[in-house]
């Protein structure tokens, strides 16, 4: 039985902005699955709808987590059940120290295993989080989520704003998390290149609908994905990267 089943959900903003138009997906224990899609496809909306961050949404369909419906439940309840989201903006508390950020999810001095995965954080424990680099903030956000020992970790665009090098490192760490801690992960990404490398299964979302799904190899072979996301030449990716960095965040 899958750990999470999203069944044909519809999310609407302000009663008239139809963003998710019947989206389904599932993920099994121990897997990494990825949802790819361009700007505005509704990826963040999907991640937030699952995590209970959009009030009264999804208004149709159901979300089953470990056999129980979590659709329209409060975000804090969903998190306490073991489904933890690392949001697109990372959700690091800017004026708390790194240590305080970690403590919020129950970290104690004994939990040194975290620094094995995220060594940078150890030196910066007493630093104000706002002074960390973007990459370090992303590490902090993920470390904080992992401390909660989530049964399912949802990551919304973990590569956002990171250099290609950092992105590669981050995805290696995610792979380690999956292999060593057996963390089940749903990753929502634009960066197909790195995510198809680590995922077991993937979906492509466009305009509020899933338009393709398949195993990692199917994704790599798929012409549409090759063309849209994997890019033919280096030039193309550079341009895509720029666009990707300058797009508006909200």
């Amino acid at each position: 039985m899958p750990i999470l089943e999203v069944k044909n959900i519809e999310t609407v903003y302000y009663d008239r902005l139809y963003v998710l138009k019947g989206v389904s997906l599932e993920i099994n224990q121990g897997e990494i699955r990825v949802v790819l899609g361009p700007n505005g496809a509704g990826k963040t909306t999907l991640a937030k709808s699952i995590s209970g961050l959009i009030k009264d949404q999804p208004r149709k369909g159901d979300i089953i987590f470990e056999g129980r419906s979590i659709a329209r439940k409060e975000a804090e309840k969903i998190s306490s059940m073991g489904l933890v989201l690392v949001p697109e903006d990372r959700g690091v508390f800017p004026e708390l120290t790194v240590e305080e950020n970690l403590k919020l999810s129950g970290w104690t001095k004994k939990d040194t295993w975290v620094f094995d995965l995220f060594p940078n954080l150890y030196q910066k424990l007493q630093e104000i989080s706002n002074h960390l680099s973007g990459g370090e903030q992303q590490m902090l956000a993920i470390a904080r989520a992992i401390i909660k020992k989530p049964k399912l970790l949802i990551l919304d665009e973990p590569s956002l704003g990171l250099s290609p090098k950092l992105t590669n490192e981050l995805f290696k760490t995610l792979k380690r998390l999956n292999e060593e801690l057996k963390t089940t992960m749903l990753i929502v990404e634009q960066n197909a290149r790195v995510s198809v490398e680590i995922c077991h299964y993937g979906y492509v979302m466009e305009n509020g609908k899933m338009v393709f799904e398949g195993k990692a190899d199917d994704l790599k072979d798929n012409e549409l994905i090759k063309e849209l996301y994997l890019g033919g030449s280096v030039k193309k990716t550079e341009k895509g990267w720029k666009l990707y960095k300058t797009r508006r965040r909200w």
Binding site: G52, A75, E76, G91, F93, E100, L104
Partner: peptide, 24 residues
Amino acid sequence: TNFGIQIRAISQNREASATLGISV
């Protein structure tokens, strides 16, 4: 105290607090 950290976290970002399971 941990309770104090939670108070400050909520005052900085409610949504993120909720994703960590803190009861606002």
